[in-house]
Amino acid sequence: MTYDGHVRGAVNRQGVALQAELNGARPTFGAFSVAGYPDLRSGIEAFVTFAQSGATVLEVGAPAIDPWLDGPAIAAAHRRALRAGDGVSTTLETVRQVSTLSDRPVITMMYWATVLTYGPERMARDLAAMGAAGCLVPDVPPAYATSWATAAAEAGITAPLLVARGASPGEMSATCRAATGFVYAPAAAGQRTGYSARIDLDDLSSFVGAVRRLVPTTPVLTGIGISTPELAASAVRQCGVAGVVIGSPLVRALADGGLDRAIPMVEGFAALISQARVG
């Protein structure tokens, strides 16, 4: 079957669950942390607890040597996780256990350098075998976007992509049309994760609108700069997104006080996001 210009395969059971979540009546709340942070066992426990506390999608970050999109909190988590072991092995084991222990769809976030070194087809197959619903690669070079999406489709997982706020019209169109599962639209233009200054919701709404005109049936999620539950709910209500992914606030909470600190934060985001309605 051909869709948006390239071949799509049938997604696996986890991918179907992800699609049902993204297209459901309630806004999606994606909770992010880094695999192996603060250690393998505790990291798995954190994801499972996030699900129990209201997260509807779990995003597992693969530890990377150069996490260029990530601010200080998440970059520090990458470094700590890498000191304990291989990033890809840690990620695959985290996905395997979390997808078994939780009924929430699990996606991964991996930098292209990690995917390319491991092998795109092999990565897609191994993630699918571990129970992943998809793999968001935020920095796939435009020339490789379609081939990566095809490799993911052949393995049965989705291939969400990040569309940069400064992308040219041609790059934006190619990225949006190659993405499967969802398109990730950063709330803060040109910023790393952990950005906590003002977000222009009118500007974000216009950007999301441009994405949706390109791919009207593909859900759009936002993040990067969504620092509070109130802002998350406002983004859902005003900007036409299907939901938000929260990372730095949760990772900082884990660093400052472990799950005792993180659980109330997850619950706070979950409560306000669930009350919002997609605009």
Rank of each mutant, 00 (worst) to 15 (best):
T2Y: 05
D4Y: 15
V7C: 02
A20M: 11
A20N: 02
L22P: 09
A25Y: 08
G30C: 14
F32T: 03
R41I: 12
R41A: 15
I44M: 12
A46F: 00
V48Y: 02
Q52N: 12
Q52S: 01
S53N: 05
T56G: 10
D66V: 12
P67D: 09
L69P: 00
L69M: 15
D70S: 12
G71Y: 10
P72L: 03
A81M: 07
R83F: 03
T91Y: 07
L92I: 15
R96H: 13
S99M: 14
S99R: 08
L101M: 00
D103M: 08
M109N: 10
W112C: 09
A113R: 13
V115S: 10
G119R: 04
R122V: 14
R122E: 13
A124R: 11
L127K: 09
A128M: 05
A133G: 12
A133S: 14
L136N: 13
L136T: 12
V140G: 10
A143Q: 15
A143H: 11
Y144A: 15
Y144V: 13
A145Y: 03
A149M: 12
A149N: 10
A151V: 13
A152H: 12
E154A: 10
A155K: 07
L162N: 06
A164N: 03
R165V: 08
R165N: 05
R165F: 04
A167R: 03
S168V: 00
E171S: 13
E171F: 05
E171C: 07
M172D: 01
M172Y: 00
M172I: 01
C176A: 14
R177M: 10
A178D: 04
A179W: 01
A179T: 07
A179V: 09
A185T: 00
A185D: 09
A185G: 09
A187R: 00
Q191G: 02
T193W: 09
G194D: 04
L201F: 01
L201Q: 08
D202W: 03
L204S: 05
S205L: 10
S206P: 02
F207I: 06
G209R: 01
R212T: 14
R212H: 14
P216T: 12
P216A: 14
L221C: 06
E230W: 03
A232C: 04
S234T: 07
S234I: 01
R237G: 11
C239M: 04
V241A: 01
G247E: 07
S248Q: 07
L250P: 14
A253N: 07
A253Y: 05
A255K: 05
A255H: 08
D256Q: 14
D260A: 13
P264Q: 03
E267I: 04
G268K: 05
A270Q: 06
A270W: 03
L272A: 09
L272D: 11
A276L: 13
R277H: 15
G279P: 00
G279Q: 11
